[in-house]
Every structure is written in C-alpha cells, then in structure tokens.
C-alpha cells in the first residue's frame, strides 16, 4: 500500500533523514519506534507532503507522494494525527471536526462522519460546543483522532498518540487505534512508548539518527535483546 524508498530529508544543513526505507501493507499496523530526533515525525510529515525530501520516493497506490500537494494527499486517504495533537484551541469541538472534513464537500457525508466520530468518542459529543482549548489532554487526543477520521482515511499516520497521557488513557487510546484498524484503516504509528506500540503493531521499524536500524515482526522485536535494552527500559 505504502512504500518508502531511500528517503533523504534536510532541515537546512541538518540531515534529518539519511536513508529510510520501509513498507506497509493494507490493513497493517506498522510502528516506527526510536529515540527523540531519530526522524520519526519527519518521516510522517514527509509522507503528508508538508516536508519535501531531497531524494527518495514514497509510493502509495502507484503514485509518488513526493510530487503531490498536502491537500491532495489527504484526499487520497492519507491523514495524519499530528504530534502534540495540534487541535484548534480557539475553535469549538464541532468546528475542529468540520475542519477535519475540509476536503469533503458533500455536507451529508460530513454530518455522517461527525455522527460516526461521536459514536466512537461520546465524550466529544457532550463537549461539541466547547472550545478545543478547554478540553483535557485525553479529550484533546480523542479530538485529534476524531478530526483525522473525518476525512475518511485509508491510512492513518499517528504521531505519538500516547504523549503526555496517563497510563489508563494510553490504554484506552490504543484500544481505539486497534478498533479503527479492525475497520479496515491501515495505521502507521510513531511512538516513543515502544512497549505499547509493539504490543498492538504487526511489524515495526526501529529508527536511529535518520536510518532504519532494525526491523521485523513486532512480537520478535519485543523479545530482541537490543530493543529491550535501548527502548523497552531493560
């Protein structure tokens, strides 16, 4: 479904991605794990088209995403839940969801999607008139995920969904991610919480300073002594 090949990205003079290659098949949950600065978020933003690579290809359904604009990428079904949630704090919950469906012009479809999101996150329905900024951290993460679901994604790019959340909430969010996946949405998951990520992923890639250091089945990686040592807290 998605094939990233020899991706190379510069931030000014800094070589953020040196050489990243990986692939994701339809219906999979693939995790990218690694330390801060390994290039995980950069990879997602390059797929979303808001950062352009120096070289390399991102193939999605036989098209090269590196030549396609961010709005078109969203329309093709690749939607990102950004790091730190980045919900619109001065817009209502409802308006945030409407923004998620910005690429959809059919009003009844937007309404249906809002109902769908409200059925997944009843809390958002209760707070639909509230400003995004007044939500708690967990609710903001729900809103960020709900907002991404509004665009009818086929592939969801999730950047650190567990960040800053209490352990109980993290588990809830990961359950939701699994449910979304079971409904046919493929997921590319970036996480520092490697334990959690590997427990729900099918496969995973370990990034280190802009390169893929390790890859394999999630279960195998969980047992891998190097991964255990470096990312799972020994």
């Amino acid at each position: 479904m998605l094939e990233v090949k020899n991706l190379k990205v510069f931030y000014g003079a800094i070589n953020a991605l040196k050489d990243i290659s990986f692939n994701l098949d339809e219906g999979e949950i693939v995790a990218l794990i690694g330390a801060n600065g390994a290039g995980k978020s950069t990879t997602l933003n390059t797929i979303s088209g808001i950062i352009r690579p120096v070289s390399g290809k991102i193939k999605y359904k036989d098209q090269d995403l590196t030549k396609i604009s961010p709005p078109q990428i969203v329309q093709m079904g690749i939607v990102q839940v950004p790091e730190g949630r980045k919900i619109f704090t001065r817009m209502t919950v409802y308006e945030n969801l409407e923004m998620g469906a910005y690429t959809i012009h059919d009003k009844t479809r937007v309404k249906n999607n809002i109902d769908k999101v409200f059925s997944i996150f009843p809390r958002l329905e209760e707070r639909q008139r509230q400003m995004g900024g007044t939500l708690s951290g967990g609710e903001q993460q729900m809103l960020a995920i709900g907002r991404a679901l509004m665009a009818d994604p086929l592939l969801l790019l999730m950047d650190e969904p567990s960040m800053g959340l209490a352990p109980l909430l993290v588990e809830q969010i990961f359950e939701v991610i699994q449910n979304i996946n079971q409904q046919g949405v493929s997921i590319l998951l970036v996480e520092q919480n490697a334990n959690m990520a590997l427990s729900i992923a099918d496969r995973a890639y370990v990034l280190e300073t802009g390169q893929v250091a390790l890859s394999g089945d999630a279960e195998e990686l969980l047992k891998n002594p190097i991964v255990k040592e470096s990312y799972l807290g020994g």
């Binding site: 979303s48 808001i50 961010p70 709005p71 990428i73 969203v74 329309q75 939607v79 990102q80 950004p82 980045k86 919900i87 619109f88 704090t89 001065r90 817009m91 923004m99 998620g100 910005y102 690429t103 907002r147 665009a151």
Partner: peptide, 10 residues
C-alpha cells in the same frame, strides 16, 4: 491558529 495542523487537514 496553526498552519501545520491546517495543512494536515488538507
């Protein structure tokens, strides 16, 4: 409010 988030919404 947030250009990056807006761009990610399409």
């Amino acid at each position: 409010e947030n250009k990056q988030a807006a761009a990610l919404m399409g």
